[in-house]
Amino acid sequence: MMIDPTIRDPDISYVRKIGNGMAVYKFWDSLSSFLFTIPFLVCFVLFLVAPLIFGVIISLHAWNPLVGGGPFVGLHNYTQLFRLSTLTGHDFWLGFANTAIFVCISVPLLMVIPLFLAYLIFRSPLKSLFRPILFFPTVLSATAITTVWDFLLQTQNGPVNNVIHAHIPWLVRQPWAWISIDLATIWWSMGFNMVIIYAALTQIPESTMEAARIDGAGSFRVFASIVIPQVRNVLSFIIVISTIASFNLFAQPMLMTSGGPNDSTMSLSYFIYEHGFNDFQMGPATAMAFLMGIILAIVSSIQYRLSRRED
């Protein structure tokens, strides 16, 4: 390790010369240590704490971005959200229900398929070939994958319909619109979860599995009784991160279905974007975003608690 011996700590030598005891030294020591966090703290305050406080202020006003302000309306934007007859209330809960449908389909599949694939790769030769290939779509952008799937899933002459010799209205009719969005999303992000589960599988002691096999347990038995319990913590982590990621669904409906048919794939984030940046209703939109953030934090902390308690 290269340490330059010629450079002395200026603080220490200065304090020692004055000889004013530990208190001064400790103060300078503490301060100089604190300085290391300053660049981060400045960014943290400017681009996370300030927006949160600013968001509270915006949500209490009928904020118009073109004017850069608006009249104070108190909690009106929030109380609106709990009345289904209002525009934002209606859109919030419709978006919430739509997003919930997506989460309920994608999260179980984003756990089961990667688990299955990770186990297959773990138990087969050519690991270093299969793992990167299946991981690959994760590095692509949401916009790239939606552009490609939008092309693949065209009803007229779309390559997918051609391969399966069908005429399925993928992007324009329900339930196909949800199936399309789920298909693209799972194709895109299963590699991410697979890599995490695979790493957990490699941590299982080989002797444990060997012992089970000598006792006559078949492949399925080993999987169900040895593998699953050993990776359960990782699986609950996967559920939490997949739920959060799925809940933030935005690019796929915006770019694949435009929220259609009949707003049935309008996700919560998409509604918030529409209200804020197309209708310029930033006050109500911020209230929607905050309520969504609170719900998301509650759901993920419940999931986290539940998965921890089972240990």
């Binding site: 927006p51 968001g55 971005p65 850069g68 933030n248 918030i272 930033m282």
Partner: peptide, 9 residues
Amino acid sequence: IALLIPLYV
């Protein structure tokens, strides 16, 4: 999503 609009403003 909670930061989106305030950051923009």
